[in-house]
Nucleic acid binder design. Structure first.
Lengths: 305, 305
DNA sequence: AATCATTTTCAAAAATTTTTTGACATGTAC
DNA sequence: GTACATGTCAAAAAATTTTTGAAAATGATT
């Protein structure tokens, strides 16, 4: 009879296709993880993984085992959580994936507030603007813009927020202020990469008619926070959520552009796995962030033309 | 994160209301089991059991935890079994509860045949004529006479077999042969105890009409094998399944009585828990016993009048 | 009421298991 | 081709679990 930790490890190895990566995540050495996996395979008398030095792939048998192992572990996790829940305790680890800019500059502080109230809660934040697989990421919650289509996920909408074009006053003084989205092509454009390719279609609306402009960037990167920093440094025009730039605009460090051509607002959603009823700590975090978003809305109303 | 063995132990402690009993069953010392339980409770940060020195009772929280723990463990067991199944291997432990007489004198030999063919299979037999709780007994299969009413159990009928009254020729020579069930009350009667009270109503039939006679025993015990030994020793008349006495009757050591008044045959059933799809080893055992019962039927046909 | 046979638990020692350490062979990326 | 990361190995070190022997507690029995 094997150790539950070994099962958890095997599941993560299957998710990440890597012993080392799983070991790092679970805070153990690769050697120890390798030994644990072999232990498990030996006890099951079955080779779960087909190994090449560079890649771990589940065997057919391994697939079946890991699948139901995942179910069982989820049940057990739920049972443990339920115990803590009943006592109304907020303890344990909370793993959250966040968009880089929103995460660093706004949500991080909110979550710090939450953990100040609940000191037994351990926070693990994963910043990034790539829409990675929630299972692979192994987080409880992922905060993401836009509609998610993965049906295995539950979602809770926190807000709907406009995307806006912004640039620094210095840049605009030098290069002029575009008065229509079509004029953007004559500007330096700062793009966010999603996946491998820049996200180069910006959405606006002209008298309620959708208007999409396709742009080539003078700079692009995969981190939304860096895009904003470029904009602040006068490197060009960025297309950001109002969430991300409200404060800078209020302070006058960034300037709103093309507010007559705002497209429909984009939802900001919190997604989580459907496999388990969210535990007390997760539910609390969801509600907390929902409150904070509401407060944000009234503190920073988007200046309408 | 706790050890799976600790969960299994906790489940058995909950079933048996005893650390020691669970420890004995799982082949560990009470001290080690106690330590393991405390380890688990500590890791869950929750008292699973309300303890008195003499009795372990699940707390409300413990109940919830053990319930889903049981599910999870069953899933995991199933996953492990499935691995062995796929390879068509017959290995692991097989725990079977058997009626005392049938078990000792017939099925044991059959099962020895099975394990001779499958040497990796470990047999654990539990003899007894008390219809104990299958969950509490923790067996894969229980062989029982009669209709079971517990709906959480699956059943497979192995045979239908008549109950017959038997006694040794010596006894009958001395006390005479009853020619009608009603005359049994003038005889020495050997009864089987089920639960605390003797099972003193014997069923016959007179021209297809059920005929039940209520008897007082001159001897009774809770073990069917002992009842047969009494009958062989000429202590009186016993009421047994034809399975149990076919060989002795064929050899002339017991004599069939009242064969004109046989009641409906009673089913012999193999019951197992519904929680898991039976594993390969369990299915194999079921089929094997079914075959053996069929072979028995043709080897020892009940002599009809 | 007192004894008895069990039961749970404890603490220290012993045994077992797991992790670390340092190394090596192998495959991938540049 | 070189540099780097990966999976595994063997021995040592560390951590965990089990045993051992004994003590305290409790329900049953006398």
């Amino acid at each position: 009879m094997y150790h539950l930790k070994d099962l958890q490890l095997a599941i993560r190895i299957a998710d990440l296709h890597s012993v080392s990566a799983a070991a790092r995540e679970l805070g153990m050495t690769p050697a120890s993880a390798s030994a644990a996996l072999q232990r498990l395979e030996h006890k099951l008398n079955c080779q779960l993984f087909a190994r090449s030095t560079r890649n771990m792939q589940l065997t057919e048998e391994g697939q079946a085992f890991i699948d139901t192992g995942r179910q069982a572990l989820s049940l057990l996790q739920g049972a443990s959580d339920a115990l803590a829940d009943k006592r109304g305790e907020l303890r344990g680890e909370l793993r959250i994936a966040l968009p880089s800019d929103l995460g660093r500059n706004r949500v991080r502080a909110w979550l710090d507030e939450l953990t100040a109230q609940a000191p037994e809660l351990t926070l693990r934040l994963y910043f990034g603007d790539q829409l990675d697989d929630l299972i692979e990421q192994n987080v409880h919650l992922a905060l993401r813009y836009g509609e998610l289509q993965d049906s295995s996920l539950m979602r809770r909408q926190l807000a709907r927020m406009h995307r806006v074009a912004v640039a620094s006053p210095e840049y605009l003084d030098r290069h002029g202020r575009p008065s229509h989205p079509q004029q953007l092509s004559q500007h330096k454009i700062l793009l966010l990469n999603r996946g491998n390719t820049p996200w180069h279609k910006w959405r606006f609306a002209d008298k309620r008619q959708p208007l999409e402009v396709e742009l080539t960037g003078s700079k692009s990167c995969n981190d939304g926070a860096v895009v904003k920093e470029w904009a602040l440094a006068g490197e060009g025009i960025a297309y950001k959520s109002w969430f991300d730039v409200a404060q800078e605009v209020t302070e006058g460090r960034l300037e709103l552009l093309l507010t007559d051509y705002l497209a429909e607002p984009i939802p900001l959603q919190l997604t989580y796995l459907q496999t388990e009823y969210p535990s007390h700590k997760v539910r609390t975090c969801i509600e907390f962030l929902k409150q904070k978003c509401l407060a944000f809305d009234s503190q920073y109303p988007l200046p309408k033309p």
